[in-house]
Every structure is written in structure tokens, then in C-alpha cells.
Amino acid sequence: MRALNDLGRPVEGVLWMLATGLAFVGVNGIVRHLGTELPAAQAAFIRFGFGLAFLTPALWTMRGVRLPQGIWRLFLWRGVLHVTAVIFWFWAMARVPVAEMAAIGFLNPVIVLVIAGLLLGEGLGRGRVVSVLVALAGALVVLRPGLREISAGHLSQLAATVCFAVSYIFAKRLSGMAPPSVVVAVLSVTVSLGLAPVALWVWQPVSGVQLAWLAVVAGLATLGHYTMTRAFRAAPLAVTQPVTFLQILWATALGALVFGEAVDAFVILGGALIVAAVSLNTWAEARRGRIPPQPEP
């Protein structure tokens, strides 16, 4: 475990995390560009289908892995949660400004904190409570309930964030029972299989251009997870976590320049509060030798 005063290779870690942010914002932008032309379940199914192709080497290595009894029930429940999450996410992404999607998505690790503290016996110490309260304040600044309409798209993204958070809890348990490559590969398989019947039910003709864009989405998502892993290896989370705030700035610029979305200072402020809360918790968890969760793309 890296010592608190060991910054590793901070410049390299920051650069890898910058690449991660660009990859994830690229994912958001392309899905926003595709809009409502394809049903959410169909677009998600195609994206994960391409993702499976990228994960073929990991799937091949699974053939000789022995897994403990009962693990497939956990894999199944995580698959169900992730299927639900990605459908909500794809549906919301076509309807909510890019910057707001990015800001709300950063609530993912905060929700994990609450679940782990209340249901998994980790407790909610003063630091965690402060982090949660600051993040909730940031979410209220972004959504501003009572001052403007909260759309179905906002609720869909909130639902996706909750499902991603619970999925992370299952992943945390599974990581102690199977190699990480197996956990990731099985997730891709179960999500693809789970999305298949829903996608077929709502299937619409797909153009070559749409297929190409969704292949790029799968590639960028895979690249983002890879660069995030490299960032974590290069430098501690306390160094790389604050860089994630730039995702909100890039998402705001993308929404304004490409989609003509108004720049909302409240979204930037609220997002900054949420990222600050996550960064505060990251620093506290690092002191305890834990690796806190990261936002899902």
C-alpha cells in the first residue's frame, strides 16, 4: 500500500486521469449526439456487444478459472442492476444536458458511502457525514427543485446513479471471490444477455453510421477504464481525484459548443461541491488504506 506522503508519479497520474475524463466525456457526447433515434435498450445492447469484442482476451482466460459456489447468484444480481442502470443512463443521456449528466453522475460514490455505512456495517463517521451532506448540497444546486422543473430525464439519471452504486457494492464483494478480469468480463456477458430481450422487443433499423458511433462509445468506455487504472497505479487517489472536476468543465464546453446548451453556472457550482465532497472522502479513505469508488461513466 502506498504511504500517504508517497505521491508516486503525480504528473503521470494527472495526465492519465485527464485522458480518462476526455474519454468519458466523449462517451457522453456521442450518446447525446445519437439522441432518441434508437431506443435506449437497443443502443445499450449494441454498445455492450462491441464491448464484448474488446474483452474477448479476458473471456478466453476464464476457461481455466475455478469460481466458488454461490458466486453466480451475485453475478446475476449485479447483471440485473447494471442492465437497469445502463437503460436509465442511455435514456437520460438523450434528454438531459451533458454537464448536468456529468454532475449527477458524480453522486455515485456518495451513494456507495451511504449504503456501505448503513447496510454493510462500515459506519458513517464525521468525515463521511460531512462528505454526504456537501454532495447533497451540490445535487440540490444542480437540480434546484422548486425553482425549475425536474424532468423525467433527471430522475432517470438519478435512478441510473443509484443502480450503478448498488452494482459497485456487488463488485466489491465479487472482487474478493474472483480475479478482476473475470468480474469485468462476466459483467459484460450478463449485461449483454440481459439487454438482448429488451433490445429485440423495441428493435429499430440501425444505420452503419449509428453502429460506427456505438463502436466508438464502446472503445472510449474501455479506454477510459484502462486509463483510470493507469492513473491509480501512477499516483494516489488524493492526487488524481480532484482532476475529475474537469469532466464537468469539458462537458459544459461540449454541451455549449456542439449541442447549443446554455452554460449553467449553478451546474458548475453544484458539480464542484459534489467533486469536493468525493475528494474529501477520498483523502479520508486513503488514510484508512481503502480505495473508494469512482463515478461510472
Rank of each mutant, 00 (worst) to 15 (best):
R233G: 08
R290F: 12
V166D: 08
V86F: 00
Q210R: 10
A215K: 02
E122K: 11
G271S: 04
A234K: 04
R2Q: 09
A58G: 09
P179M: 00
V96W: 04
I87K: 02
H33V: 06
V217W: 13
F88C: 14
L59T: 03
V11F: 06
R47M: 05
E261Y: 04
L34N: 13
L136Y: 03
A238L: 09
A196C: 13
L107A: 06
G49D: 06
G121C: 03
V112S: 05
L119V: 12
V267T: 14
L118N: 04
N5G: 01
G70E: 13
W283A: 14
G260F: 06
G49F: 00
L211Y: 14
G26F: 02
L52F: 01
V243A: 09
F266E: 06
S207H: 01
A251M: 05
V189I: 15
P10S: 06
A19L: 08
A53Q: 01
V129P: 00
Q241D: 07
L269A: 12
L38C: 14
T229C: 03
L193R: 11
G49W: 02
L18F: 12
I115F: 04
Q42V: 08
P293S: 11
L55N: 10
M101A: 11
R290Q: 15
V96R: 07
S175P: 00
